[in-house]
Design a protein around this nucleic acid. Sequence first.
DNA 1: TTGTAAGCGTTATCAA
DNA 2: TTGATAACGCTTACAA
Lengths: 330, 330
Amino acid sequence: MATILDVAKLSGLSKTTVSRVINNHPYVSDKKRELVLKAMKELGYTPNPSARRLRGQLTTTIGVIVPRIVNPFFASLVNSIELAAYKKGHQVLICQSYEDKEKELAFLNLLKTKQVDGVIMTSIENDWEVIESYNEYGCILLCNDYVNQTVVPMVRLDQAKGAYLGAKHLIDRGHQKIAYCTGGLFDEQGKGKDRNQGFQKALKEAGIKINPKWIFIDQHTIEDGKQVIKQILEMEDRPTAIFTGSDEIAGGIIIEAKEQGITIPNDFAIIGFDDQPIAEIVDPKLTTIRQPVDQMGNKSIEVMIKMLENPALDIKNYELPIELIVRQST
Amino acid sequence: MATILDVAKLSGLSKTTVSRVINNHPYVSDKKRELVLKAMKELGYTPNPSARRLRGQLTTTIGVIVPRIVNPFFASLVNSIELAAYKKGHQVLICQSYEDKEKELAFLNLLKTKQVDGVIMTSIENDWEVIESYNEYGCILLCNDYVNQTVVPMVRLDQAKGAYLGAKHLIDRGHQKIAYCTGGLFDEQGKGKDRNQGFQKALKEAGIKINPKWIFIDQHTIEDGKQVIKQILEMEDRPTAIFTGSDEIAGGIIIEAKEQGITIPNDFAIIGFDDQPIAEIVDPKLTTIRQPVDQMGNKSIEVMIKMLENPALDIKNYELPIELIVRQST
DNA sequence: TTGTAAGCGTTATCAA
DNA sequence: TTGATAACGCTTACAA
């Protein structure tokens, strides 16, 4: 590989001048700039990022932490992040946390060693204090997931509103007995609390009481969805509608329901979350709450790069719109 | 961040000795090793990968090129690669080529600058000669896609056999009029040629002639599948079975067929390729050819790491099993 | 406007 | 068995 010295020699100039050209510094005469550019081209020269990194420069690499890439929601989020990053000349290092604290920390360690300029976290596993302690080593940006403090920029959706819209839609369709499936808990605090609040708000407004037997926590996959509907079918007192935290659970419910001879939306109305491709694949097609994934990816990269260029940037909260998509399952 | 010098100072030894401990070199007394280890722990020391890279060491980063991460097949391939790499202490840098030659090359350039130790290519866009020219800068491994020369290790499936099994299955079910959808071309050469061959072999053995009107090339998405079935329905002379190059196309066909009041498998038998999650989501569930994605990912990392440790490694071709999964669509 | 030289954190070479 | 030192490729004071 050609080095900066090779370029310097070929152009008959010093390393410094070459470096100045590479970094667009002022005080280089047009003539010499030409010379350098020509030599660079001739040698097919690319600056060595490791050396730049070592010297304390930017790495042009951004890390992204997702729970799992096979989850289509996160796949499309990574997709939009990668595309946006590439346009800006950055690479994307991905890490699947698999919801594991240790994996998450191992990845955040890349900040310490300047392997990545910054990390976009799409989910948070460790306590925020722990994660925050890495913030001194590089930029952290929260995308999708978030915390209550405003210590790092966040790109997020109004999940409470999304859940509210979904629940309200079911109520407007005449449902009073509504089950709730979440990937998190059904707490005031903790994972998924915003959606819980939105859901509860809608029910409260309609004067509906929540039946704790119809709350299913820690549900994630298609398989989980199948189990949920099985459990519901065994109940004496059944709900008439099911609100779910993801299209995958909703999809599982629809698939298994059909297997059991249940008609949707007649026997049960189902609503998903995310608007993943599966929403249009299942039959009946899924009513769901759309998360503007592409916008989230673009915004995250935009903000991240701004942060990198100007570390003193104001820390802001970017909220993106969320909307209800009505299809056939409700 | 603590550096090797800090560790040296704290342990009262030299950088060299510390380095020896880090790299498990011989000739370090147990006592001093202890000392170093203790100091490392106390300082929370992590070696700086940029410095190691610059010094010509391994980067513990492996690049993976996929056409697009939102394609579930590639998402699960990346998933298994990432998991296997993590176990071995490696990071994974992903690049979506979006089937773009330039993007592919931009990424291969990371090899030149020692940003990644090696690249796993799951698809090939540029001419092989072009790609091969990067092989001198680092390890290249082909996974899923392949070329005819054996210049780099390849982890692949017997696609011809897969296609043969699928076509044979349709024939065994009594079909004589079989359409063919491929993501590539219907050539002797070029993308997807193996599957073409397998398909053709099965038909030939059964004495069936191929109707060129029933060949659909360059089909990829669910949307494409919908278009295919629409076209078929407009034909005078229709096929009775459709062989597709991916579960997504097959899924699209099933979805649209249902919309049009067609019954599957009665009116048409459909067979997919990949055994993606969608295969079990559509109704009727999809008969398909399973590609052992996890095995491919694991094997690729295993071989890649072997190559990195021993660049003189024999270049081999690793072929993994492929099988037919019969469900309801045939 | 240009160049010299020091230094980023490692590891390999050589000498002790 | 240990340590001093040079080198990897780059950027940035500082000097000219």
